[in-house]
């Protein structure tokens, strides 16, 4: 029996195949967030405790947007084979992503005091930010992986699928936050 470990289809472009798979995964994952956002409105309507720090929410939103910009620059640089610029930009993305997580941590500390997880708003707040923070965390891990030396060789050969995949995932996490921020912090 002749096992095929990786299919090399001579009549199809491997990158395009991977891309379709990634987009499908993102589509599926977005329904996770849709389900939790639905939960927020179903349980709490548009209620929001006055102790919620809207300004901090705004600041970390901008931080995440900025990280997305650097991720975009990193991918574009990788596409043009500019490895130095790629590395700086991805490092900046990782730094800003970590800063975002710190911001969420501050929010959580405040949340535990004013709307703990055993209350109505606390339940949806901690669930929604928790699932999102988990995505940010995995995104950071993924970005660290593409900085490993193993990928450098591939970039030199002009194939940057790993970078593209992780950066797309990162942008997706940002898109999710674009909806989560008004859902939690702004509607009333």
């Amino acid at each position: 029996m002749n096992m095929v470990t990786s299919i090399t289809t001579d009549w199809e472009d491997r990158g395009a195949i991977n891309r379709v798979g990634l987009w499908l995964f993102i589509l599926s994952d977005s329904f996770l967030f849709i389900a939790i956002i639905f939960t927020r409105f179903y349980l709490q309507g548009v209620q929001r405790p006055s102790e919620l720090n809207q300004l901090l929410g705004f600041v970390i939103s901008v931080v995440l947007l900025l990280s997305s910009l650097f991720a975009y620059r990193g991918e574009t640089a990788a596409a043009y084979g500019d490895i130095r610029r790629f590395r700086y930009n991805i490092l900046a993305t990782i730094g800003l992503g970590s800063l975002f997580l710190v911001g969420v941590g501050v929010e959580w500390a405040e949340g535990f005091r004013f709307f703990p997880p055993s209350t109505g708003f606390g339940t949806v707040f901690f669930t929604l930010t928790g699932f999102h923070a988990f995505h940010v965390f995995t995104g950071i891990l993924g970005l660290l992986l593409i900085l490993l030396p193993g990928q450098k060789k591939r970039l030199g050969e002009g194939s940057y699928w790993g970078v593209e995949a992780m950066v797309k995932y990162w942008h997706f996490v940002d898109v999710a936050w674009v909806f989560i921020f008004p859902t939690l912090y702004l509607v009333s």
Partner: peptide, 25 residues
């Protein structure tokens, strides 16, 4: 050119976010 496009998109998004914040508060 592409990198500059990234800046423009980011600026738009930030502006949008500021309006959102003002509307929301």
């Amino acid at each position: 050119v592409k990198l500059r496009l990234g800046f423009k998109v980011f600026a738009t998004l930030t502006a949008l976010k500021i309006i959102e914040y003002v509307v929301g508060t």
